[in-house]
Design a binder for these strands. Structure first.
Lengths: 190, 190
DNA sequence: GTCTATAGGGGGATAGAC
DNA sequence: GTCTATCCCCCTATAGAC
């Protein structure tokens, strides 16, 4: 049961949380309705179909990320600090009831979710990669990061590893997640 | 529709394939029955509950992995070759209809699958990590692998990254998966 | 081992009252 | 915007015939 100021926003919050907790095929309108303290049909008023709801969650996340990285609080950080900020997003997910990242959650179920959702996930994943690549590139130029190969590939590896590490932590515990993040940092010192 | 010699084995094959394709919550007894060309109830005869079926799939995979790594064809390889063999497992999954690894699939849905399954996944993940750690350790001693930090942490990072990369490839394409594997190899040369 | 039949539940979604 | 009521489908699972 959750307080309501803005139903639509609260629904999105709950849906996002459930997506990261149980996956797209693991949650239902009933779950959201129960926590919100309303009936099933009320959710359908705001989001006619489950696909609509899923897409709205991802879209909001994309907007949020875009705002973050364009905000001076992040934009003006050093590459080192940017990377730490990035890792902290995932660390916070792990701390928040062992959530995994939206992208990983939906890609694992990719072939059993609506196509409109797939496209949204693709867009988000590209944006995350692009920012990370730019950050690694910048850091290598200024000499704080050292690594072989292309920044784009290194970005793909790091993003994949935190995505995988959040999942791994569910079976093997939070320490394993932290180990992966530490190793990823070590692998930038070379 | 699939030929039947051994129903139980065929069911396990289909279930494993569906798990890697659609996830635990994304497939049903009906899917298997249809492909096998039998009725729903026939599957329940072999595997009373869906949890039983899921556990059997993971157990078989664990046995298979154990056999592989103890077989002289793998056991006697160099660390370099062992690692290549390991990556080839994942490359083959990607080639096979864009499957993801069982562990990643089930950890993404971890909080919406039966507890008995969770335990099985935990066991498998530990075994994969343990073997990879030993291989990295061996390779570092013989000088073919170079990396900072503990072999256990490096193993966790590499395993997480291929797990994540298979998922990433679903949204961004096979090239991205290959990029991650190549980067992982580069990161062992330092 | 596989079938038919069916129980029993949950899911997504809609219509119409308030 | 939220309610009640309802539809229809799919799902897991079981009983009993063959």
């Amino acid at each position: 049961m959750v307080k309501i100021e803005n139903s639509k926003r609260t629904i999105l919050n709950l849906a996002e949380s459930l997506l990261q907790d149980k996956g797209f095929n693991g949650f239902s309108y009933a779950h959201i309705a129960a926590e919100l303290g309303v009936k099933n049909a009320a959710i359908h008023y705001h989001f006619p179909s489950k696909e609509d709801l899923g897409r709205a969650v991802i879209q909001r996340y994309r907007d949020r990320f875009k705002l973050w990285i364009n905000n001076t609080r992040v934009k003006d950080l050093s590459p080192q600090e940017k990377l730490d900020w990035f890792f902290s997003i995932y660390t916070d997910m792990r701390s928040d009831k062992g959530k995994v990242c939206l992208v990983g959650s939906m890609e694992a179920e990719f072939n059993s979710i609506p196509e409109g959702l797939q496209a949204e996930v693709e867009g988000l994943h590209k944006e995350l990669l692009k920012w990370l690549e730019a950050t690694l590139s910048e850091g290598r130029e200024t000499g704080v990061f050292k690594f072989n190969g292309e920044p784009a590939n290194k970005a793909a590896l790091i993003l994949s590893s935190v995505q995988g590490a959040l999942q791994m932590a569910r079976a093997l515990g939070t320490k394993k997640f932290r180990d992966v993040v530490e190793q990823a940092k070590l692998d930038l010192l070379v």
